[in-house]
Amino acid sequence: MTTAHLSEFVVEATEIQTRFGDNQVHSGINLRVPRGKIVGVIGGSGSGKTVLLREIVGLLRPTSGHITVLGVDMWSSSPAEVSGVKERFGVLFQNGALFSAISVGENVAVPLVENSDLPSALVTRLVELRLSMSGLEPKVALMMPSELSGGMRKRAALARALALEPELLFLDEPTSGLDPINARAFDHLVRTLCDNLGLTIVMVTHDLDTLLGITDEIIAIGDGRVLAQGPVAQVAAVDHPWIREYFDSRLSSNRR
């Protein structure tokens, strides 16, 4: 490993601006994600959380600004460098994005088969482990994605994102659609992997239990910029109308 890989921040975004026609989504986002941490991204509907995530993983080009992931600039490096970085992170999309033409097991196996030369028996065992790590029974592997419920689809997608245990994971609403028991099991899994394998996790989430329970830092996005970044308590104390309302409503409903 070169020293570039071990830099302190795995994701750095500077002065990100995004405009769709007349709609200014981001007007100067600056953020840094420290290595080995779980970072939660919060923000109101339409504040551009998912857009930001898509820009970071290289699916959508920001109008201006720079994004560096694992030391590589996602929008000005050579295609080979960018695809090299893409092999090193995993993404969980909001609706799972499982490939509908192949079975759940094959879905989970895709990253393993495409990026390694493991024998198929080993791949099968790893798929089984990944599925059970995300809380699914092994027999689910033989089902087609269309046969799964929403929560199961989410967990299968998580298993695929975890397949290679990438050093950086992007999760878009990982616990939405999961029941509280599975959501907490997910929290535990993510925390264990992060603590013991040194994974860095960036997740867009509104699950307050997840936010309070396992995140090291929170990035609050609003008005097209980063309103606050830091530990939960620090962000909750920031004097901004949206942040105040967000934590007030959630914390009071939690206490009931």
Binding site: I102, S103, G105, E106, A109, P138, L142
Partner: peptide, 9 residues
């Protein structure tokens, strides 16, 4: 013990 042996039905 529940040994999955294949990924394709």
């Amino acid at each position: 013990s529940n040994g999955l042996t294949q990924l394709v039905p």
